[in-house]
């Protein structure tokens, strides 16, 4: 399991990346993060919803309601053009970060 401290700066990036594939809702996103990371990272509920709140406030995602088959209403999220631009920025930042940090990582 990855500590949430280390990964904190990239929670938003992970969510945005999943939303690039199409609109989605809270539980589906957390499930996909879990399976994509091969259970190495499980995003906490409050972390996920904090991120939704923050991303929406910044205009990176939109939310809307959609009725489910058995009468339940779900909050769906979709990425905005602003969100795409932000995602690209974060990807570049990560590439650079990875490049720098990896120079200090070696086998002992």
């Amino acid at each position: 399991m990855i500590s949430s401290d280390v990964i904190r700066g990239y929670n938003d990036t992970m969510i945005l990346s999943l939303l690039l594939d199409g609109e989605s809702y809270g539980y589906e996103i957390s499930k996909r993060i879990r399976t994509l990371s091969e259970e190495k990272y499980i995003m906490k509920e409050t972390t996920l919803y904090s991120a939704f709140t923050r991303l929406e406030k910044n205009g990176f995602i939109d939310s809307f309601f959609m009725d489910e088959t058995f009468g339940k209403r779900r909050t769906y999220y979709r990425i905005t053009p602003l969100g795409r631009a932000y995602y690209r920025e974060k990807c570049e930042e990560w590439t650079l970060t990875q490049e720098v940090v990896s120079k200090f990582i070696r086998e002992l």
């Binding site: 499980i42 906490k44 509920e45 409050t46 972390t47 919803y49 904090s50 709140t53 923050r54």
Partner: peptide, 13 residues
Amino acid sequence: SEFGNIEELAAEL
């Protein structure tokens, strides 16, 4: 156990 902590959410709000 996977809920997290409410302070995180409160801080964001």
